[in-house]
Amino acid sequence: MKRKNRFKIIAASVMLLGGMVFLVVAMTRSTSMRHFTPASLVLDGSSADNQRIQVDGLIAAGSSQWDAANFVLTFAIQDRETDATVNVIYKDQLKPDNFTDGGSVFVEGEYDASQNLVVATKLMTKCASKYDGAESAVPTDETSYNSSE
């Protein structure tokens, strides 16, 4: 084994590895979104102003308005534990299946701290009681059994 050859191989490997690590770190930094609940937004919302974030909670009862003619869904997400809420506007997308008061909801979008508003680009719902992980390739478990009697 020639030493020069070994050096070349190590150098190439380091470059490849370095490139991949750089790519991953750079992309993670530029796309990573912090995860909030309505309660944590109340506490720390100003730090998330104009950032893309994720919020998960429940659809606040009576809060949702669906303007079918203009394709605009507005509603509030209620915290699972406290009574904190955050408003959401979701435009130009179909109203998702199972969008019902009290259902679990998960949104992704840009946060406007002054209005406590998330301009959502992605919205996922889950039926409140029954089917877990409806879209799952591998249907999920039995945790809902006790609650759904």
């Binding site: 998960d56 996922m124 719902t125 999920t140 945790t143």
Partner: peptide, 21 residues
């Protein structure tokens, strides 16, 4: 894969349901 999707460690719509597995 089973661990990721079933343990509830990842908060996506699929992993909402948690289990002790």
């Amino acid at each position: 894969g089973t661990f990721i999707t079933r343990s509830g460690i990842i908060a996506s719509v699929h992993a909402f349901a948690q289990s002790d597995i």
